[in-house]
């Protein structure tokens, strides 16, 4: 697995099914394209369930944190080229990443190659 680049801050949290600390997802209005948006300093959860990322597309703002939570019975990971690569997440485990730059980030599960997701990172 490649380490996070200097341009990004990677927070790796394995919670092993404890449920995790409560988080407040600061969300703005749901845009007409159906993608969820953040408002900066927010936390967004991508739920991994039924061999899929949910939501598959997420719009966040610089300063936000995205948390992938494995709610599936099988293990998954979250990998995006050189930006981030989680460990294999067992059921209940999470991986968090805070983007350090704007742009589109495509990621996937390398264990289940058909699982794909996308983040759009915008300025607050």
């Amino acid at each position: 697995m490649r380490p996070a680049t200097l341009a990004t801050l990677a927070l790796v949290v394995g919670l092993g099914g404890a449920g995790g600390a409560a988080f407040a997802a600061a969300r703005g209005q749901t845009p007409q394209d159906g993608r969820e948006r953040g408002s900066g300093e927010g936390r967004h959860e991508v739920r991994i369930k039924a061999v899929a990322f949910n939501p598959t597309s997420l719009v966040v703002q610089l300063g936000d944190t995205v948390v992938w939570r494995n709610a599936d019975i099988v293990r998954h990971n979250v990998v995006s080229g050189e930006l981030f690569a989680s460990a294999e997440l067992s059921s209940g485990e999470t991986f968090a990443w805070a983007p350090g730059d704007t742009g589109t980030v495509r990621y996937r599960c390398t264990i289940h190659p058909r699982m794909r997701g996308e983040l759009t990172v915008r300025l607050p």
Partner: peptide, 16 residues
């Protein structure tokens, strides 16, 4: 519930 949870993984394997 476990069986319901397993089903998507089996379906994904089939598709693959």
């Amino acid at each position: 519930a476990l069986l319901v949870q397993v089903r998507p993984a089996v379906a994904a394997h089939l598709e693959h």
